[in-house]
Design a protein around this nucleic acid. Sequence first.
DNA 1: CCTTTTTAGGTAATCGATTACATTTATTTA
DNA 2: TAAATAAATGTAATCGATTACCTAAAAAGG
Lengths: 328, 328
Amino acid sequence: MEQYSIKDIAKLSGVSTATVSRVINHKGKYSEQTKEKVLKIIQQTGYNIDVSAQSLRTNVTHTIGILVPDIKNPFFADLVQKIENHLFNKNYSTFICDTNKKQEKEKAYLQMLEKKKVDGVIVISGSGKRGFKFESSIKKIPYICIDREPQNFNDTIFISSNHYQGAYDATTYLINKNANHLLIISDRISTSSESRLAGFKDALKQNGLKYSKANNYLLLKKDIDFDSFISKHPETNGIFAINDNLAIRVLNRAKFLNIDIPNQIQIIGFDDIPAASLVNPSLTTIAQNTKRIAKNTVDSILSSIEGQGDKGSKLLIPVKMVIRQSTK
Amino acid sequence: MEQYSIKDIAKLSGVSTATVSRVINHKGKYSEQTKEKVLKIIQQTGYNIDVSAQSLRTNVTHTIGILVPDIKNPFFADLVQKIENHLFNKNYSTFICDTNKKQEKEKAYLQMLEKKKVDGVIVISGSGKRGFKFESSIKKIPYICIDREPQNFNDTIFISSNHYQGAYDATTYLINKNANHLLIISDRISTSSESRLAGFKDALKQNGLKYSKANNYLLLKKDIDFDSFISKHPETNGIFAINDNLAIRVLNRAKFLNIDIPNQIQIIGFDDIPAASLVNPSLTTIAQNTKRIAKNTVDSILSSIEGQGDKGSKLLIPVKMVIRQSTK
DNA sequence: CCTTTTTAGGTAATCGATTACATTTATTTA
DNA sequence: TAAATAAATGTAATCGATTACCTAAAAAGG
C-alpha cells in the first residue's frame, strides 16, 4: 500500500480510528496496552498523519507566516534564521514572504497566508514611513509586529530593539571621545530611523550641544552629497550613520577624500552587519540582540495563538555597542 | 456568518456545489449565465476556498519547500529571494528550511515537508563533502538540486553555476596579468569547491604552470595560516580564493602584513557578495547569475511537478568576472 | 417528428482525521 | 453482591472541496 491512513492503522491494530487518534494526540483515555499496540503499528507502517485532513477538521495548521521586507538585508536574514529555527523546534513550519518593501505585496501575501490558514503571522513591515497597518478583514489571525512599529498600535504586540537607546549611546560615546561637531546620516525615513534620530538629538541636548537640521543632519542619496556637506562643514568630527551600509559608504567616501578615520572624523553605524568587521578601518557600530528578539517573537506569537496574547504590549530590547577602529 | 463554504455559495447562487466547483476551477461544462451568477456571489461574500479541504481531496498544496544551508550567506539569500519571488508569482508558497549545514536537520526538514505534502522540494544541500543524498523513502516528491551536486545524481535534476569555468577564467586572468606564482585558498571541501579547484588546476596546466599541493594550495583555518604560507612562499603573486569571505579575510591579512594589493599580490574571490565592493581595495570576483539560476530552478521544479521533469539533466550556468581593484 | 448526441447541472461518495456521544468493561463503594 | 462510578473503546457525524456517475434538457440529425 502506498500511503497509510488512520483507518489502516485502526484495522491493523484492532481498534477504532477514535482510539488511534487518541493515542496520537495524547488525548482522552486509553490503556497502556493499546497505546503500545498502536504505536508499534505506526512504527511498522511508517504512518504519517495527513495534515490536510487534520487541519480541515481542527483549523490548525502548525504554520506561521513571516513578512520580511528584504531577506538579503543581513539583519533580517539573521532574525528570520533565528525565528525559523525556534519555530522549527516547536514543530512549526515557516512561510517566508519577501515583500520587497512594497505595500501591495504585503497585502497580497497576507491574503495568501489567510487562505493557507496559517496559525499566526509575524510582520516585519518595510513599506512606507508610517508603519504597517493591518487590514481589518485579516485581523482575526494572531499576529505580532517586530522591528517597525505598526500604525494601529493599540491592539498589537510590538517587539523591537531600543533604537532610541542605541542612538543615544552611540552619540554620547562620540561626545565622550571629544567629537563635538556631530552629524547624523540617514537614507530614508522609517519608524525605526525616527527613534534613532530622536536618540541622537537627545544626546546632543543632554551634553549641551545644539541640533539643527542644516548643521547636523544629512539625507544621503548619492555619495557626493557627503562631499558637499563636508566642504560646507569641515569642522565635522563625529558621524552617526543610521545603518551600517550607510556608514560604510561614508567610510569609503571619507577615505577617498583623504579624511583620516578615526583621527579626523569618527564614525559609528547601526546593525553590526558582517561587512562592518571586514572594512578597513573596521566599523564601530550598534549591534541588535537578534537572539533575544527572535526568542521573544516566537514566544509571543505562540502565546497569542493560544489566546494568551498580550495585545497592546510593547517590548524594547537593549542594544549593545561594538567598538572597533572607526572610533577612538 | 463567519466563513463561507462552497455549500453556502451553492445555496446563495441556486446551484449545486459541483457547479460552483466547476466554475471556480474552470473545469467541465457550465453556461456563461451560471458562471456570472456564481462569480457574483463569490465576490459579494468574499468567499475563500478552503485549501485544507482542497488538498485533502486533490493531494495538491501549491507549496514548495526549499532547503537552504544558511540564509545569512548573501549568495543563498539572494537566490532564495529570487526563487521565492518567482514562485509567489506562480501562486506557490515557499516553506523556508534553514538546515544550518547539518545533515540531520536536512532529514528532519524533509520529513516535515513530506508530512505537509509539499508539491516539490528545492534542495541546496550544505551538508558533508559528498553532496546531498535523498532518502529513498522520500523520493516520491519531485525535487531538484541546485548549487551542490547530489550523490545519486542520475535520477535528479541538477542546476548550478559553472564553478569550473569561473575558476578557470579567474586563474587565466591572473596569469594574463603576469601572476605566475599562484595560490588557491579554500576553507572546506564541498562539491562546488572541488569544481573550482579543478578549474584552477586546468588553467595552470593550460598555461604551462605546475600545480602541487605544497606550493599552490592552502586550506585556511586561522588567519595566521596565511602568514606562514607567505613566509614559506614569498614569491606568491596571485591568489584565487574559493569564496569572497575567504578572499576578504586574506585581503585584510595581507594589508596587515604590509603586502601591496594588487601590486605585490593580486586576489580574486568568488560569489560577489555585497562586502566585495565595500572593502578596500575592492575585490575582483566571480559573480554567479542568480537570476538565471532562480528562473531555471522554478521552471524546472514546476515542470517536474507536472510530470514533465527531465530527470538526470544537468544545467551549468555561466558566471561572470567582476573586475575591481584587487587585480591589475 | 422521433432518435441520437451534446450540454448543463445535480447527487452523493470520497479524501482522512477529530470528537460528541454511546456503549461496554472494569473498578470502587456501600 | 448490587449499585455507582470510572475507564476504555466504539459509532458515526463532521470539516469543505472534488468528481464519477446520473439525469434532464437542448441541439442536431435523419
